[in-house]
Structures are given as structure tokens and as C-alpha cells.
């Protein structure tokens, strides 16, 4: 076992020059403290091993199996089947559209709201709270509430539209995916707004003053100062939004049931049905693993590209 984090491997009591090192335990790699550390970590080892690493190993292993108990070895069958499965392909496309649209929406709307709230306005705290309130709701509430509001017969939205003289819609039939995306944004933009607000407050006021003195207009200041200096926040928001968007489930389960005709068949909803309706754990495991790979690749690429775009002034 190597001890990369320490330099003190001398036997206890061996004479050596006194050196100042960091940490209260630096005088020696005292065996007692090492034992204490491991004892304190024991529950964590057990937990993360049994509840994270073991399940992943089990999932990968059952993705190569088939049968009701996922106990018959099937080689790559589940994976080849996934690539030929039209329903999976549809579900994947739907989910990517959903993930990209909710990400772009979260950035554009969240940033706009943050910019507005970053001015000296009365009642900022009240506005912030009001914008954040939907984020506190469970997806169960969001789903049920909007199903009611959007209902073509008894929903309040169509009544509002017709009172205003606007055409009514059967939202979930004509534009199901766009509607579900809108509902999701309703729930999440407050969260993004708070993140952007924190990012904006980290930009020193002097930069704007200097730019104004140099004759930069508001538009120029936004493109040349705000946006580049917000890049780390934007990167974080986009990574989180993509990750969350690709694994959305409740919206499909509660609002649309994946329909009409699979147009809102979000990937995890599809996997859920393969696993718990068709009871095909092997295939469902393979499908989960594929999405997991996609998310990991997406995240790595986003971080690579995003980091390259960062600037320092």
C-alpha cells in the first residue's frame, strides 16, 4: 500500500529533523489517527460500496443477461436489440430534444430574469421568492396541476385564451413535447435564475464603470463583460440542465403517459416501463447503461469545450 498523501513513513520514535507540516496529525502518521479515520469512514465504505458500486456492477452484469430474473447469459443481445429498436430510437430522440430545449430555455430565461433582478429594484427579495416557488414543488404537483390547467375541456388556460380573444389549443395533443418542455421550465427556471444571480454578483462593478467610461453601451457591456465572466456559471447550469433533462421521468409518467403516440416517451419513462411493466430487467439494464454512457460523454465534452471558452480579466 502506498501512502501518497504523506511523507512521514519513518518508524515511530525514529529521530528525524523537526519539520513543520500541515494538519494536526502531521507530527507522524500516527497509527491511532489512521485507525480513527478508517473507523469513522467505515459506514461510508459500506454505504457507497453496497448502494452505489455494487448496483452499478450488478446493472452492467445483468445488461448481458435475459429472462425474467435476468439470469440467462445473452452476450451483446440486449445492446444489439437496443440499436435496432425503433421505440428506443424514438424515445432517445424525444429525450435529447427535451434535454437540449430545457437547457437552452433554462439558460436564456434564467439569465434574463437574473439580469433584471440584479438591478436596484424595490422588492427584489419578493420577486426572487416568487420566481423560485415552483422549484419547491414535487414533480407530482407540477404534473397534476398542469394537466388540469391544460385540459382542453375543463382547463383554465383555454378559457383565459378565449377570454382574451386568442385561439385555444389542445396543448397535449397538438404540441405535446413543447408543452412538457414549457411545464418543466416553469418548474426549474427559478433555480437557474438564483445561480446566475450569484454569478452576476461576483462580477466587480469597476469593470462596468471602466467600460462605461470607455464609451461602451449596455449591449456591448453585456457581450464583452457579463457573458464572458459568467462563463463558469453558464457552464455549470448547462451541465446540470442536460444531466437533469436527460433523466426526466415524472413529466411523462404523470402528464402524458409518454403519448400521444410516443411523442413524449422520455427515456427513463421508457426504461421504467421495460423494467416494471414488461419485467425485462436485462434489456432495461442495457438501456440504462447506454443512457449513462451518453450522459458521461455529454458531460465530459461540455466541460472540455466550456473550460476552453473561459476567460480571465
Amino acid at each position: 500500500m502506498s501512502a501518497p498523501t504523506t511523507t512521514a513513513t519513518a518508524p515511530p520514535g525514529a529521530a528525524r529533523p523537526v519539520r513543520r507540516r500541515r494538519g494536526p496529525f502531521a507530527k507522524s502518521l500516527n497509527r491511532r489517527y489512521v485507525i480513527t479515520a478508517y473507523l469513522f469512514l467505515l459506514p461510508a465504505f459500506a454505504f457507497f460500496g453496497l448502494m452505489f458500486y455494487l448496483p452499478i456492477a450488478n446493472m452492467v452484469s445483468s445488461s448481458f443477461r435475459t429472462g425474467a430474473q435476468a439470469d440467462v447469459y445473452a452476450g451483446m443481445d440486449n445492446y444489439t436489440r437496443a440499436f435496432e429498436d425503433a421505440a428506443v430510437r424514438n424515445s432517445f430522440t424525444v429525450t435529447v430534444i427535451f434535454g437540449v430545449a430545457t437547457t437552452i430555455g433554462a439558460i436564456v430565461i434564467g439569465l434574463t430574469l437574473a439580469l433584471l433582478l440584479n438591478q436596484k429594484l424595490r422588492g427584489r427579495v419578493v420577486f426572487r421568492a416568487a420566481l423560485l416557488v415552483p422549484y419547491l414543488t414535487s414533480v407530482a404537483i407540477v404534473g397534476l396541476l398542469w394537466r388540469n390547467i391544460l385540459d382542453p375541456q375543463l382547463g383554465i388556460l383555454n378559457r383565459l385564451l378565449s377570454d382574451l380573444g386568442l385561439p385555444t389549443q389542445t396543448w397535449l395533443n397538438t404540441h405535446p413535447l413543447a408543452t412538457v418542455i414549457g411545464v418543466t421550465l416553469w418548474m426549474t427556471v427559478g433555480y437557474t435564475m438564483v445561480l446566475f444571480l450569484a454569478g452576476l454578483q461576483g462580477i466587480p462593478e469597476e469593470y462596468y464603470e471602466a467600460a462605461t467610461v470607455d464609451g461602451a453601451g449596455p449591449w456591448q457591456r453585456f457581450w464583452r463583460i457579463t457573458l464572458p465572466l459568467l462563463a463558469p456559471t453558464t457552464l455549470f447550469v448547462s451541465v446540470m440542465a442536460v444531466i437533469n433533462g436527460l433523466q426526466a421521468f415524472g413529466q411523462a409518467y404523470i402528464i402524458t403517459g409518454g403519448g400521444p403516440a410516443g411523442r413524449t416517451d422520455l427515456y427513463i419513462f421508457h426504461v421504467f416501463n421495460v423494467a416494471f411493466t414488461s419485467r425485462d430487467f436485462g434489456y432495461a439494464s442495457a438501456l440504462s447503461f447506454l443512457l449513462f454512457l451518453v450522459i458521461v460523454i455529454f458531460t465530459v465534452v461540455q466541460l472540455r469545450v466550456g473550460r476552453r471558452g473561459e476567460v480571465q480579466y
Binding site: F48, F52, P55, Q247, I268, F292
Partner: peptide, 24 residues
């Protein structure tokens, strides 16, 4: 605390943040 494998274990811990619920 300073102890053998500290960094390795910490990275193994942080890696679980990348594992979403649907995988488990």
C-alpha cells in the same frame, strides 16, 4: 485526517455524484 489512500478514496466518493438514480 491524513491516512493512506485518502485521495483515492475521496475521488471514489466524489465519483458517485456522477451516478444518477436511474442507473441504480
Amino acid at each position: 485526517f491524513r491516512f493512506p489512500l485518502r485521495n483515492t478514496l475521496f475521488i471514489a466518493l466524489l465519483a458517485t455524484m456522477m451516478i444518477p438514480l436511474f442507473v441504480r
